[in-house]
Design a protein around this nucleic acid. Structure first.
Lengths: 341, 341
DNA sequence: CTGTTAGCGCCTTCAT
DNA sequence: ATGAAGGCGCTAACAG
């Protein structure tokens, strides 16, 4: 058993209350006793038991991070990773810690059980929650709606509940922007990758494209495979670039662009001479380490993570919140992978 | 205020103890009361307060993860990421959660303060600790030695304390193995990247090479730059491959091999025709998405993370531990990036 | 099988 | 400025 506050008090010849006051700076205490207590704390390497403290204060200074992932891990893809970095930074700065919450498969199978994130917050293990990347299925989950309404939660991504705290970038807009850039360079047949997760945005993007870029033939392809990505991409390129005659490809993330480039190299298709490649990047300069350097829309995922954490902590600590929902602006970075035709 | 066990007890018309017994399955309770309690739990969406429970049980079912990083984030590099995935998996399976501990810079500047990982364990926030990637400086930290001796800790990497729990792969051996493979393919001048962190292994590797592969000229280069890696690598290739005539390059991680390949492409150096490339990979098939597919030594980082977590939990839960230190075997995977000369 | 009781370690009145 | 006392919510020992 570690030393308790009473041990410290006894050794310093004071009461437990005095020790508490000194440790928390709650009230003035004489210099003499302060010294004695410091010595005793040092002696025992005393650290206040957080269960007891939490029981009293009803706060753990821990923040939960919940990034549900269908099949793959939350430590995958630079979008997630950059967000995690940003979150970690903000939390560390404000002296909170980060608890990773990963749902058991069991929950998704039989929806009866309480989801873990809710459990954690009800159990007071965490003071607040950062969420991202919910699939549509989850957004309709009553447990989810409840938590957003009743507890301190920031959702990163398209806002789910009209009052909820939220941080986002305009997915549809920057994707259309990417297509517009290619269009202005003369491209009229574009292969556009979109993930299952963003299916719900697809229609809006396509509509906007039809209105604004009338001559554009857009081939939206939903392409899952993280697993055997190389082979899959190879056949997609053969189908859309070689056979259909697409002159440009729009990738969703740099990792995808990388595999795309490898596939092109294998097929002896030169980038950008024969096909242009454009991508989204979530980490600064991610596109610059490829060859050729890939032009990309930079989405500041790390800043979004950090901002979400700040917002949550401000809310928890009762600070004034200027905006419930904060938008982050992507920035286009021109490099060497696209050309005018 | 959330409902407490007494609220549930009152509504079910039983005592708090009975509720506790039902929730924990600690003792037999009549079917009737069980039903009533279940209803009340449902009614309040009751979840036991973890502060109170922890205070009683002195356990939080949380495990700390501490990957100190000089400058860069713990969410960087597939070695870390794969370990995190493995850890996450094991912990989830056994119903523990994962707390990320990141040291404040402050600690490393002025070594006075207690490091956070020690603080957390003394405060009982976590039941145990998983550590990895300590720089040499940290290994000599008295706070560190103390924790390894006194608390439930598993270190992932070369063992630090003779009695500590530990999980590792033989860094020196598999690196020499990589060089041996190139040697057997006729390579006699090899550019070998080694990180600052592994400086202490360098000598051992070089000694073994001198003994075993006498004709080999090894150019060990310590190359930090994650930042402007591309440019840096370009000049290293020009220096060692073009000028010195190295016929093979050994990369430390796939990310590095990727940049290497991009640099070679830029310099019009064909791989493997003009230079062979070999690497270490920490995620299965990581090397296969590059072009050409890179031959690599697969180090099972994910399994190591999972194994470390298992070991720690077994220890915490008082299970018999067969081996204090577990070795993981890397596996060489031949692909297309090296050739006989 | 069930209820009563007594802490776990801390913080916060209240009284001095 | 300081100490005594009570209670945060839960569980385990004891008594019935």
């Amino acid at each position: 058993m570690e030393a308790s506050i009473r041990d410290v008090a006894r050794r310093a010849g004071v009461s437990a209350a005095t020790v508490s006051r000194i440790l928390n700076g709650t009230a003035a205490v004489s210099e003499k006793k302060t010294q004695a207590v410091r010595e005793a704390v040092e002696f025992y390497s005393y650290e206040p038991n957080q269960f007891a403290r939490g029981l009293k204060k009803q706060s753990s200074r821990m923040i939960g991070v919940y990034f549900p992932t269908a099949g793959t891990s939350m430590f995958e893809g630079s979008y997630n990773l950059e967000m995690l970095k940003g979150i970690e930074k903000s939390l560390r700065y404000r002296d909170y810690s980060m608890v990773l919450i990963s749902e058991t498969e069991e929950y998704w199978r039989r929806k009866k059980k309480t989801p873990k994130y809710l459990e954690y917050i009800r159990q007071k293990r965490i003071d607040g929650l950062l969420m991202s990347g919910l699939v549509n299925q989850a957004r309709d989950d009553p447990a989810f709606r409840q938590i957003v309404e009743e507890y301190p939660v920031v959702y990163i991504g398209k806002r789910v509940h009209k009052d909820g705290l939220n941080v986002y970038a305009q997915f549809e807009q920057y994707n259309v922007q990417l297509l517009r850039i290619l269009y202005e360079q003369g491209h009229r047949k574009i292969l556009f990758f979109i993930s299952e997760m963003h299916r719900n945005h697809q229609e809006a993007i396509e509509r906007q494209v039809r209105e604004e870029l009338p001559e554009l033939e857009l081939y939206s392809v939903s392409f899952q495979g993280f697993a055997d990505a190389g082979r899959e991409l190879l056949s997609l390129i053969e189908k859309y670039v070689v056979a259909q005659g697409c002159t440009a490809v729009c990738a969703r993330v740099i990792y995808e662009a990388q595999i795309l480039l490898a596939a092109c190299a294998q097929l002896q298709i030169k980038v950008p001479e024969q096909v242009s490649v454009i991508s989204v990047e979530h980490s600064r300069n991610e596109g610059a380490v490829l060859y050729p350097r890939v032009s990309a829309m930079y989405v500041p995922a790390q800043a979004m993570g950090a901002g979400a954490a700040e917002l949550l902590l401000d809310y928890i600590e009762g600070k004034e919140i200027a905006e419930n929902s904060i938008e982050y602006e992507p920035e286009y970075i021109e490099r060497d992978s696209i050309r005018r035709i």
